[in-house]
Design a protein around this nucleic acid. Structure first.
Lengths: 328, 328
DNA sequence: TTCTGCTGTGAAACCCGTTTCAAAATCTAT
DNA sequence: ATAGATTTTGAAACGGGTTTCACAGCAGAA
């Protein structure tokens, strides 16, 4: 791999001049410029990003720390972030943590020592707070929120309103006995969605009925069986996300229960599969592209955003009516 | 951020000694070692990975170049690779290319200049051959194959056998008129799967009937409509992947056609959704964890693997019988 | 006691692109 | 033609962890 000094020697100029030609950081005599360009071509020189980032203290890297890239929602988020990053010449470093605190910490540590320009983090693990407060690079928390941290920025949709919309839609569709499959309550978005559901129940005089589940389809199936046993009159299910909604449908179908005839289902996230499954899943959609792009931009244009001292960027969720609910 | 020289000053030793303590590269007097350890703790020193990788010419980075992380199969592959990489202290740099040649080239160039230790590439774009041949870091092609390149290594499952298995299973399940939804034939895995189907048709005296489609569910739906118009007696569909199989099911269902009663469907990949959908999708599964881990290991342990001059690592596909086919 | 051999240690070079700084070259004005 | 202003350019420092190399210190051998 050719280095800048070899190029310089070949073009009979100094490395500084080659650098200036490449980056356009200063005027260079036209003839020398041509010699340099020729030498770059001849040697196939590509500047070493590592050396550049050592000096610049920016590796043009965005760290993405996720519970799991296999989760379709996170995969979509990652795709959105990657596209925005790529557009501006940044790369993405992907870290799966399985929500394990130690892995989250290790990943942040590592990204920081890699001169990453920022970290996009999806966790609401309070144990990380001390660490994130002292981190020297910007940290953007997506989809979730940490209690009481003011060094971070947040990008997410309005899960509370989303939860409300889900409950209201089910009520509007005639449901009288709605069960909410709550996600893990340590996760802020799951809390917010649940809060939305709960408040609507209160306002509309509907009994609050809940059941706990992880964001995971095996749990989703188990829990749906429980619902059928516990709540004999259930006619509406709000799932904490689409994966769980799909598994709920599966169990209902297996039990010969008509969806949406007898029980209506609404999910959360609007992953690609929601439209693809049969029947198509009614769900609360998140503008994942906008969320991903905003998170990336907060890092890429951190100087610009440092001026506005907005800490939370909140997007609207939206009801996506499909086939697992029915208007009356 | 503290540097090694500050730690050295605090511990009253040279930077070299601090380096030796951290890496265990040489014996260090026990008392000095303790001083260094204390100084590291006090300053919160974390070695800068960029500086390290500049010297070592290895950034402990694996580049992953994919058409799209949103595709669930690739997301699973990415997860498998990430887990293996992480276990050995490597990070993953994710690049989506949408199969655009220019982006694939740019990503490889960039990864190379980042001192990545290797690249895992999913493409069968022949235009890249010249480039990959001259790349200074190892390139592992997963899931697909390039014609006639001998500098690369390949990790994938036996798509040809997989295609055979799919066709044989449908025949064994009583199908007489099977339509194969071929993936894009520029993609080697799609070619191989199709070849398997074709050969089984020949051997078993079944008419070959095909239709073209991209690996994409909108195409999948469009093409399934076509099948219904063109092949009135169709009773079996082999889809080039699970996404397409799911969309085929959707169209069949919408048309009131019983699956598997009237038409049976088999997909490819065994993505998580295949088990989750209703009815559960029969499919040809790929051992994606093993494929991902092997690809990562070929980079992480490149020295070891350089000795064996095996160029292709092939895994077995397997039939996963579920509910969209029925034994007779 | 002197010589060999081994271990521990620090100064300095190294990796390589960027930037500073001062000198050199070119140009403007008197 | 010369002082002064401006532009172009290269040497050297920089970033920070690693490694080489040579020297110092000490143990055992002669």
């Amino acid at each position: 791999m050719a280095s800048i000094r070899e190029v310089a020697k070949l073009a009979n100029v100094s490395p500084a001049t080659v650098s200036r030609v490449m980056n356009g950081t200063a005027r260079v005599d036209e003839e020398k410029k041509q010699r340099v360009l020729a030498a770059i071509k001849e040697t196939g020189f590509v500047p070493n990003e590592v050396a550049r980032s050592l000096f610049k203290k920016s590796a043009k890297l965005i760290g993405l720390i996720l519970p799991s890239i296999e989760n379709p929602f996170f995969a979509q988020l990652a795709g959105a972030i990657e596209r925005c990053a790529d557009k501006h010449g940044y790369r993405l470093v992907l870290c799966n943590t399985g929500s394990v605190t130690e892995k989250e910490k290790a990943a942040m540590q590592m990204l920081s020592s890699m001169n990453a320009d920022g970290i996009i983090l999806t966790t609401s693990n309070e144990e990380l707070r001390e660490f994130t407060e002292n981190c020297s690079i910007p940290i953007i928390v997506t989809d979730r929120v940490f209690q009481g941290s003011n060094k971070l920025k947040y990008v997410h949709c309005d899960h509370y309103k989303g939860g409300r919309m889900a409950a209201e839609h089910l009520i509007d569709c005639g449901c009288k006995s709605i069960v909410c499959i709550k996600g893990q309550q340590e996760i802020s978005s799951a809390r917010d969605r649940y809060d939305g559901y709960r408040d609507v129940c209160k306002e509309r005089g509907i009994k609050e009925q809940t059941v706990d589940s992880a964001y995971d389809f095996e749990e989703g199936m188990k829990v749906t069986e429980e619902i059928l046993e516990t709540f004999k009159d259930v006619d509406g299910i709000i799932a904490c996300n689409d994966m769980v909604a799909i598994s709920a449908y599966k169990v209902l179908h297996k039990n010969g229960i008509d969806v949406p005839g007898k029980i209506q289902i609404i999910g959360f996230d609007d992953i690609a599969l929601a439209k693809l499954m049969t029947p198509e899943l009614t769900t609360i959609g998140q503008p994942v592209k906008e969320i991903g792009a905003k998170a990336a931009e907060l890092i890429i244009f951190k100087d610009k955003y440092a001026k506005e001292d907005k800490q939370e960027y909140i997007f609207e969720a939206s009801l996506v009516e499909r086939e697992t609910t029915r208007d009356i």
